[in-house]
Amino acid sequence: MIAQNFEYETPSTLEEALELLADGAKALAGGMSLIPLMKLRLAVPERVVDLRRVPGLNSIRVAEGQLHIGAMVTHYELESTPLVRRSSPLLAAAAASIGDVQVRNLGTLGGSIAHADPAADYPAALQALEAVIRIAGKGGERAVSAAEFFVDTFTTALEPGELVVEVSVPVEAAGTGVRYEKCEQLASGFALVGVAARVAKKGGKVSMARVGVTGLAGSSYRAKNVEALLEGTTGSAQDVTRAAAAVAEGKEANSDIHASADYRAHLARVYTARALRAALGTAG
Protein backbone atom coordinates (compact mmCIF):
# COMPACT_ATOMS: atom_id res chain seq x y z
CA MET A 1 0.00 0.00 0.00
CA ILE A 2 1.69 3.12 -1.24
CA ALA A 3 0.37 6.63 -0.67
CA GLN A 4 0.00 9.06 -3.53
CA ASN A 5 3.04 11.28 -3.91
CA PHE A 6 3.06 14.42 -1.84
CA GLU A 7 5.31 17.27 -0.85
CA TYR A 8 6.64 17.03 2.69
CA GLU A 9 7.24 20.13 4.82
CA THR A 10 8.73 20.38 8.30
CA PRO A 11 8.15 23.97 9.42
CA SER A 12 10.01 25.14 12.50
CA THR A 13 7.53 27.77 13.64
CA LEU A 14 3.77 27.74 14.23
CA GLU A 15 3.35 30.76 11.92
CA GLU A 16 5.06 28.90 9.09
CA ALA A 17 2.90 25.82 9.72
CA LEU A 18 -0.31 27.89 9.73
CA GLU A 19 0.76 29.57 6.50
CA LEU A 20 1.16 26.17 4.84
CA LEU A 21 -2.14 24.91 6.28
CA ALA A 22 -3.94 28.03 5.03
CA ASP A 23 -2.57 27.12 1.64
CA GLY A 24 -4.39 23.79 1.74
CA ALA A 25 -1.73 21.51 3.19
CA LYS A 26 -2.66 18.63 5.52
CA ALA A 27 -1.33 18.54 9.07
CA LEU A 28 0.62 15.44 10.14
CA ALA A 29 1.08 14.85 13.87
CA GLY A 30 1.64 11.24 14.99
CA GLY A 31 0.24 9.92 11.73
CA MET A 32 -1.77 7.13 13.34
CA SER A 33 -4.96 8.16 11.53
CA LEU A 34 -3.65 10.11 8.55
CA ILE A 35 -1.03 7.64 7.30
CA PRO A 36 -3.41 4.65 7.11
CA LEU A 37 -5.87 6.88 5.22
CA MET A 38 -3.13 8.00 2.84
CA LYS A 39 -2.03 4.40 2.24
CA LEU A 40 -5.62 3.52 1.36
CA ARG A 41 -5.76 6.71 -0.75
CA LEU A 42 -8.84 7.80 1.14
CA ALA A 43 -6.74 10.88 1.87
CA VAL A 44 -4.65 12.21 -1.01
CA PRO A 45 -3.08 15.45 0.23
CA GLU A 46 -0.72 17.14 -2.21
CA ARG A 47 1.24 18.66 0.61
CA VAL A 48 1.79 17.36 4.14
CA VAL A 49 2.98 19.52 7.03
CA ASP A 50 4.80 17.49 9.67
CA LEU A 51 4.37 19.38 12.94
CA ARG A 52 7.18 17.63 14.82
CA ARG A 53 9.57 20.56 14.66
CA VAL A 54 7.02 23.18 15.65
CA PRO A 55 7.95 24.35 19.16
CA GLY A 56 5.44 24.81 21.95
CA LEU A 57 3.03 22.02 21.05
CA ASN A 58 4.52 19.47 23.45
CA SER A 59 4.00 21.10 26.80
CA ILE A 60 2.05 19.77 29.76
CA ARG A 61 1.41 22.39 32.44
CA VAL A 62 -0.98 23.35 35.20
CA ALA A 63 -2.13 26.94 35.58
CA GLU A 64 -5.10 28.40 37.44
CA GLY A 65 -6.78 25.10 38.15
CA GLN A 66 -6.51 23.89 34.56
CA LEU A 67 -4.31 21.23 33.04
CA HIS A 68 -3.10 22.48 29.65
CA ILE A 69 -1.86 19.89 27.18
CA GLY A 70 -0.12 20.70 23.92
CA ALA A 71 -1.65 19.14 20.81
CA MET A 72 1.48 17.10 20.03
CA VAL A 73 1.58 15.35 23.40
CA THR A 74 1.32 11.61 22.76
CA HIS A 75 -1.08 9.12 24.29
CA TYR A 76 1.85 7.44 26.04
CA GLU A 77 2.99 10.74 27.53
CA LEU A 78 -0.53 11.35 28.83
CA GLU A 79 -0.87 7.89 30.36
CA SER A 80 2.58 7.95 31.97
CA THR A 81 3.22 11.55 33.07
CA PRO A 82 2.68 11.87 36.84
CA LEU A 83 1.31 15.42 36.52
CA VAL A 84 -1.43 14.21 34.16
CA ARG A 85 -2.23 11.09 36.18
CA ARG A 86 -2.58 13.25 39.27
CA SER A 87 -4.38 16.22 37.72
CA SER A 88 -6.70 14.38 35.36
CA PRO A 89 -6.83 10.65 36.03
CA LEU A 90 -9.77 10.38 33.64
CA LEU A 91 -7.80 11.76 30.70
CA ALA A 92 -4.83 9.54 31.60
CA ALA A 93 -7.14 6.51 31.69
CA ALA A 94 -8.64 7.34 28.30
CA ALA A 95 -5.14 7.71 26.82
CA ALA A 96 -4.00 4.39 28.31
CA SER A 97 -6.95 2.58 26.74
CA ILE A 98 -6.10 3.58 23.16
CA GLY A 99 -4.98 0.92 20.68
CA ASP A 100 -1.60 -0.60 21.51
CA VAL A 101 1.77 0.63 22.73
CA GLN A 102 3.10 1.36 19.24
CA VAL A 103 0.09 3.56 18.51
CA ARG A 104 0.26 5.28 21.90
CA ASN A 105 3.96 6.02 21.37
CA LEU A 106 3.25 8.08 18.25
CA GLY A 107 -0.41 9.11 18.31
CA THR A 108 -1.17 12.57 19.70
CA LEU A 109 -4.05 14.16 21.57
CA GLY A 110 -4.45 16.91 18.97
CA GLY A 111 -4.25 14.54 16.03
CA SER A 112 -6.75 12.13 17.48
CA ILE A 113 -9.39 14.72 18.27
CA ALA A 114 -8.92 16.55 14.97
CA HIS A 115 -9.54 13.24 13.20
CA ALA A 116 -12.73 12.79 15.29
CA ASP A 117 -13.27 9.10 14.83
CA PRO A 118 -16.74 8.43 16.29
CA ALA A 119 -15.33 5.46 18.24
CA ALA A 120 -12.21 7.18 19.60
CA ASP A 121 -11.62 7.25 23.36
CA TYR A 122 -10.64 10.87 24.07
CA PRO A 123 -13.97 12.43 23.08
CA ALA A 124 -15.83 10.64 25.90
CA ALA A 125 -13.34 11.96 28.47
CA LEU A 126 -13.20 15.45 26.97
CA GLN A 127 -17.00 15.72 26.98
CA ALA A 128 -17.19 14.64 30.63
CA LEU A 129 -14.34 17.01 31.49
CA GLU A 130 -15.99 19.93 29.64
CA ALA A 131 -12.62 20.43 27.99
CA VAL A 132 -11.69 23.58 26.13
CA ILE A 133 -9.90 23.19 22.81
CA ARG A 134 -7.64 25.99 21.64
CA ILE A 135 -7.48 26.38 17.90
CA ALA A 136 -5.03 28.47 15.87
CA GLY A 137 -5.41 29.73 12.34
CA LYS A 138 -3.63 32.25 10.17
CA GLY A 139 -6.14 34.84 11.33
CA GLY A 140 -5.64 34.22 15.04
CA GLU A 141 -6.72 31.95 17.84
CA ARG A 142 -10.05 30.87 19.28
CA ALA A 143 -11.25 28.41 21.86
CA VAL A 144 -14.24 26.09 21.71
CA SER A 145 -15.78 23.64 24.17
CA ALA A 146 -15.61 19.91 23.56
CA ALA A 147 -19.38 19.97 23.05
CA GLU A 148 -18.94 22.45 20.19
CA PHE A 149 -15.76 20.86 18.82
CA PHE A 150 -17.10 17.36 18.07
CA VAL A 151 -19.67 17.97 15.36
CA ASP A 152 -20.18 14.63 13.64
CA THR A 153 -18.36 11.57 12.32
CA PHE A 154 -14.87 12.74 11.25
CA THR A 155 -16.17 16.29 11.49
CA THR A 156 -15.08 18.95 13.97
CA ALA A 157 -15.42 22.67 14.45
CA LEU A 158 -12.02 23.15 12.77
CA GLU A 159 -12.24 25.39 9.72
CA PRO A 160 -9.93 24.72 6.76
CA GLY A 161 -6.43 25.87 7.66
CA GLU A 162 -7.00 25.68 11.39
CA LEU A 163 -5.01 23.59 13.84
CA VAL A 164 -5.67 22.28 17.35
CA VAL A 165 -2.86 23.70 19.50
CA GLU A 166 -3.91 22.91 23.07
CA VAL A 167 -6.52 21.11 25.14
CA SER A 168 -7.42 22.27 28.65
CA VAL A 169 -9.23 20.26 31.29
CA PRO A 170 -9.92 21.06 34.93
CA VAL A 171 -7.51 19.82 37.56
CA GLU A 172 -9.70 17.26 39.29
CA ALA A 173 -10.81 18.36 42.75
CA ALA A 174 -9.98 16.03 45.62
CA GLY A 175 -12.87 13.66 46.20
CA THR A 176 -14.10 13.60 42.62
CA GLY A 177 -14.48 10.04 41.42
CA VAL A 178 -13.71 9.27 37.78
CA ARG A 179 -13.85 6.25 35.50
CA TYR A 180 -13.56 5.40 31.82
CA GLU A 181 -15.23 2.14 30.83
CA LYS A 182 -15.30 0.83 27.30
CA CYS A 183 -16.48 -2.19 25.45
CA GLU A 184 -13.62 -2.65 23.07
CA GLN A 185 -13.77 -3.96 19.52
CA LEU A 186 -10.96 -6.44 20.10
CA ALA A 187 -9.28 -6.35 16.71
CA SER A 188 -8.95 -2.57 16.56
CA GLY A 189 -9.15 -1.46 20.19
CA PHE A 190 -11.74 1.15 19.22
CA ALA A 191 -14.79 1.55 21.43
CA LEU A 192 -18.04 -0.11 20.48
CA VAL A 193 -19.18 2.11 23.29
CA GLY A 194 -17.05 4.04 25.76
CA VAL A 195 -18.32 5.99 28.75
CA ALA A 196 -16.41 8.51 30.86
CA ALA A 197 -17.88 9.43 34.22
CA ARG A 198 -17.01 12.05 36.87
CA VAL A 199 -18.95 12.34 40.08
CA ALA A 200 -18.70 14.19 43.38
CA LYS A 201 -20.75 13.78 46.56
CA LYS A 202 -21.66 16.25 49.25
CA GLY A 203 -23.65 15.47 52.41
CA GLY A 204 -24.43 11.97 51.16
CA LYS A 205 -25.90 13.21 47.85
CA VAL A 206 -24.45 13.28 44.34
CA SER A 207 -23.55 16.94 43.92
CA MET A 208 -21.99 16.71 40.46
CA ALA A 209 -22.23 14.15 37.68
CA ARG A 210 -20.68 14.38 34.23
CA VAL A 211 -21.04 11.66 31.61
CA GLY A 212 -19.34 11.57 28.20
CA VAL A 213 -20.17 8.93 25.61
CA THR A 214 -18.26 7.76 22.55
CA GLY A 215 -18.94 5.06 19.98
CA LEU A 216 -22.71 5.08 20.25
CA ALA A 217 -23.63 7.81 17.78
CA GLY A 218 -22.09 9.78 14.94
CA SER A 219 -20.45 12.09 17.43
CA SER A 220 -19.45 11.85 21.06
CA TYR A 221 -21.77 13.66 23.45
CA ARG A 222 -22.36 14.63 27.04
CA ALA A 223 -25.32 12.71 28.44
CA LYS A 224 -26.94 15.59 30.34
CA ASN A 225 -30.13 13.63 30.97
CA VAL A 226 -28.17 10.94 32.83
CA GLU A 227 -26.37 13.62 34.85
CA ALA A 228 -29.65 15.32 35.81
CA LEU A 229 -31.23 12.02 36.88
CA LEU A 230 -28.28 11.19 39.11
CA GLU A 231 -27.57 14.55 40.71
CA GLY A 232 -29.36 15.00 44.02
CA THR A 233 -29.80 11.27 44.59
CA THR A 234 -27.77 9.24 47.07
CA GLY A 235 -26.12 7.42 44.17
CA SER A 236 -27.52 4.04 45.15
CA ALA A 237 -27.29 1.10 42.75
CA GLN A 238 -30.92 1.76 41.84
CA ASP A 239 -30.28 5.47 41.19
CA VAL A 240 -27.37 4.59 38.93
CA THR A 241 -29.34 2.02 36.93
CA ARG A 242 -32.27 4.40 36.52
CA ALA A 243 -30.02 7.28 35.38
CA ALA A 244 -27.91 5.08 33.07
CA ALA A 245 -31.06 3.82 31.36
CA ALA A 246 -31.45 7.25 29.76
CA VAL A 247 -28.02 7.40 28.11
CA ALA A 248 -29.07 6.53 24.57
CA GLU A 249 -32.38 8.40 24.60
CA GLY A 250 -32.83 10.64 21.61
CA LYS A 251 -29.64 9.37 19.97
CA GLU A 252 -29.43 7.56 16.67
CA ALA A 253 -27.15 4.63 17.54
CA ASN A 254 -24.57 3.46 14.99
CA SER A 255 -25.06 0.06 13.43
CA ASP A 256 -22.27 -1.85 11.73
CA ILE A 257 -20.68 -5.27 11.31
CA HIS A 258 -19.53 -5.24 14.96
CA ALA A 259 -22.75 -4.23 16.72
CA SER A 260 -26.33 -3.39 15.83
CA ALA A 261 -27.89 -0.12 16.95
CA ASP A 262 -29.95 -1.89 19.60
CA TYR A 263 -26.94 -3.71 20.96
CA ARG A 264 -24.88 -0.49 21.08
CA ALA A 265 -27.68 1.23 22.99
CA HIS A 266 -27.77 -1.73 25.40
CA LEU A 267 -23.99 -1.54 25.83
CA ALA A 268 -24.21 2.18 26.47
CA ARG A 269 -26.67 1.62 29.33
CA VAL A 270 -24.55 -1.17 30.83
CA TYR A 271 -21.24 0.70 30.53
CA THR A 272 -22.70 3.96 31.80
CA ALA A 273 -23.90 2.16 34.93
CA ARG A 274 -20.48 0.50 35.33
CA ALA A 275 -18.58 3.76 34.91
CA LEU A 276 -20.86 5.59 37.33
CA ARG A 277 -20.71 2.84 39.95
CA ALA A 278 -16.91 2.76 39.77
CA ALA A 279 -16.64 6.56 39.87
CA LEU A 280 -19.02 6.75 42.84
CA GLY A 281 -16.95 4.10 44.58
CA THR A 282 -13.95 6.42 44.65
CA ALA A 283 -15.84 9.71 45.17
CA GLY A 284 -15.32 11.22 48.60
Partner: peptide, 15 residues
Amino acid sequence: GKAVKSCTMFAVQAD
Protein backbone atom coordinates in the same frame (compact mmCIF):
# COMPACT_ATOMS: atom_id res chain seq x y z
CA GLY B 1 13.72 4.46 21.84
CA LYS B 2 9.99 4.21 21.17
CA ALA B 3 8.47 1.09 19.62
CA VAL B 4 6.62 2.01 16.44
CA LYS B 5 5.04 0.17 13.55
CA SER B 6 7.34 1.09 10.69
CA CYS B 7 4.56 0.50 8.15
CA THR B 8 2.78 3.52 9.61
CA MET B 9 5.59 6.03 9.47
CA PHE B 10 7.14 7.64 6.43
CA ALA B 11 10.92 7.35 6.15
CA VAL B 12 11.14 11.15 6.00
CA GLN B 13 9.64 11.29 9.50
CA ALA B 14 12.65 9.32 10.76
CA ASP B 15 15.06 11.95 9.40
